Amino acid sequence: MGWIVRSEQDLYRDKWVHLTSADVELPDGRHLDHRVIRTAAPGAGAVVVDQGRVLLIWRHRFITDTHAWEIPQGSIRPGEDPADGAAREAEEETGWRPEKPLRPLVYAQPSPGIMSSEHHIYRADGATYIGPPKDAFESDKIEWVPLNEIRGLIDKQHVVAGTTLVALLYLLTEGDCNTE
């Protein structure tokens, strides 16, 4: 039983985001005035694993005024293959070039109740350091974090971003990750 969008009205639009007000008819016939956020491009991220460690960035998110560990991720450019976008973002944000081929790890829609954002997350086994990150403003520090510390970081709320949580928890279920 689906919700039916009867109409949408533009509230705001720029090159990154499109905000609308949707008149949604619920299955019981009632109507709901719902906000919808449509993102301009899907995102891609990379979980880079090497020797029982994962490459993470410690960053500040001004909206929530919090610091936490995240995987490198960002928008896929028009015409760009999602795996190539994930590799590019990892390199730009960390200075580490993921080993190819990147393999699909997990696909996520972080908040489908309000936004259209799609995240394609890939896994790389190893990386080569090529120099300081191009986008040094993205993080306060870049570290290889032991996989056996991930659960503790989540418990201490040092990993809170939805896509990073999904990616790391999924990674830990793969069975081939040595967390010793």
Rank of each mutant, 00 (worst) to 15 (best):
H60E: 03
L169G: 09
W96K: 00
D155S: 01
G45A: 10
H18F: 00
E118R: 06
P110E: 08
V36E: 11
T94E: 03
D14T: 00
A87E: 01
D81C: 08
V48T: 07
H158D: 08
G152H: 14
A86S: 11
R123E: 03
W96G: 00
A161N: 04
E99D: 10
R13D: 09
K100Q: 12
R61E: 15
A86C: 02
Q73T: 06
D155K: 02
I121E: 11
V49T: 10
L171E: 01
G45H: 04
P112F: 07
G95I: 11
Q157G: 02
G74Q: 14
V145W: 01
E149M: 05
G152N: 14
G85D: 06
A87W: 10
E80C: 12
R151W: 09
G79M: 05
D50I: 05
T66L: 10
K15A: 14
P146C: 07
G175A: 10
E180D: 10
M1N: 13
P27W: 06
P132V: 03
T173S: 08
I63A: 13
V5T: 13
M1P: 14
F137I: 12
A41K: 15
E92M: 04
I154K: 08
R53P: 04
K134F: 09
Y122E: 05
E89I: 07
K100R: 15
W144K: 11
V47Y: 04
E70N: 15
G95N: 03
P27T: 11
T173P: 07
I63E: 14
A86L: 03
H34A: 15
L55P: 05
D84Y: 10
Y107M: 13
S116G: 11
A22Q: 10
H34K: 15
L168E: 11
E91G: 07
L56V: 00
E92C: 06
F137L: 13
Q9I: 11
L168Q: 11
E92Q: 03
Q73S: 00
W69F: 10
D81V: 08
R88F: 07
T173L: 01
A167N: 05
E25R: 09
Q51C: 06
H120M: 03
R123S: 09
C177G: 12
H18I: 00
H34I: 13
V106H: 09
T20D: 11
T39Q: 15
D155R: 00
D155P: 11
H60K: 06
P104T: 00
D81K: 12
R88A: 13
C177V: 12
G74H: 14
K134G: 07
Q51W: 02
K15P: 09
A127D: 08
Q9S: 12
A40V: 03
W144L: 10
A124H: 09
E149N: 02
G113Q: 13
F62P: 12
S75I: 08
G2H: 04
V48K: 04
A108C: 08
A136C: 09
R103K: 11
D23T: 12
V47C: 07
A90F: 04
N178H: 01
